[in-house]
Design a protein around this nucleic acid. Structure first.
Lengths: 144, 144
DNA sequence: GATATTATCGCAATTCGTTCTCAATAAGGA
DNA sequence: TCCTTATTGAGAACGAATTGCGATAATATC
């Protein structure tokens, strides 16, 4: 299996874009965070490593990462988008606590069936899905 | 079945808030749009009706509508959230075309099972879910 | 390897959605 | 009817995201 950087380089090459250290630092930062992340977290992480990458560059790199299939939008919260890397990961869904905000990742095969059924029913070529289940986690539901 | 306005009034009363014409105009606008909507669409609709409701009031009313269960967040697109009214509607999921942006609503019973399974597995009191399936619609997939 | 072309960079300014501030208003209880 | 105070509208403020621009550096060409 190719590494993230290799996938990214291939993507960049195929698009006729330039391979730059800044973009690759962003890719590395993205895959160094083994969790959901937002632009500011990337920025802070890169800053701590004494990499002087501007936020503008991070914002300009995000669409490339999305398009190359390395990351995807996870959810919108606190006034901005959060992402997660998906390359090399099994697809998963999110279970979110409405009270404490905790997010658990889970996988569920049945959802694949839903994809197929719905795709057929409405003549869609389905490429993916995003499922978020929400409620109250074990700790929080006690206090009610 | 109670009307939206009645549900809203009850909610307002129970919370000890005040019944105002501005809030009720927003509720009416929300249920006048039989589709997904965003804040600006509400604003424009109210403007056309010569209702002088400020955007601030709309923004302040949205959380009340969410909390009362009359509406829910549908998806984040074009830099802002889109909502839909759910009161009086069967729960549904979204099928979105990544190319033309078309959104189809569908219902699928299996998802309920996923809710139950996951809730049990992680000790959650599940209250709902949001499922978005995406891909390329019949028209768009031809052009590829 | 040197040179030319132009994509990309950082910075600052800008845009855009949303929230806040505050004085004026009006809802609802006394 | 009066009083208290939640709510309103208008605009300022805020934060996320985008864009313009001069400087820089990655690639193609020689």
């Amino acid at each position: 299996m190719k590494s993230e950087i290799e996938v990214f380089r291939e993507f960049i090459r195929n698009k006729g874009l330039r391979k730059t250290p800044e973009r690759e630092q962003v890719v590395r930062a993205v895959f160094a965070i083994h969790d959901h992340f937002d632009v500011d977290e990337l920025y802070v992480l890169l800053r701590r490593q004494n990499e002087k990458i501007s936020k503008a560059t991070i914002y300009r790199t995000i669409p490339l990462l999305l398009e190359s299939g390395l990351i995807q939008e996870a959810y919108f919260e606190d006034g901005h988008l959060h992402y997660e890397h998906i390359y090399g990961h099994e697809h998963h869904c999110h279970l979110r606590c409405l009270e404490c905000g905790k997010v658990i990742e889970f996988t569920e095969e049945i959802v694949k069936e839903v994809e197929e059924k719905v795709g057929e029913r409405y003549d869609f070529l389905v490429t993916g899905h995003k499922l978020e289940v929400y409620g109250h986690c074990g700790k929080c539901k006690v206090h009610q």
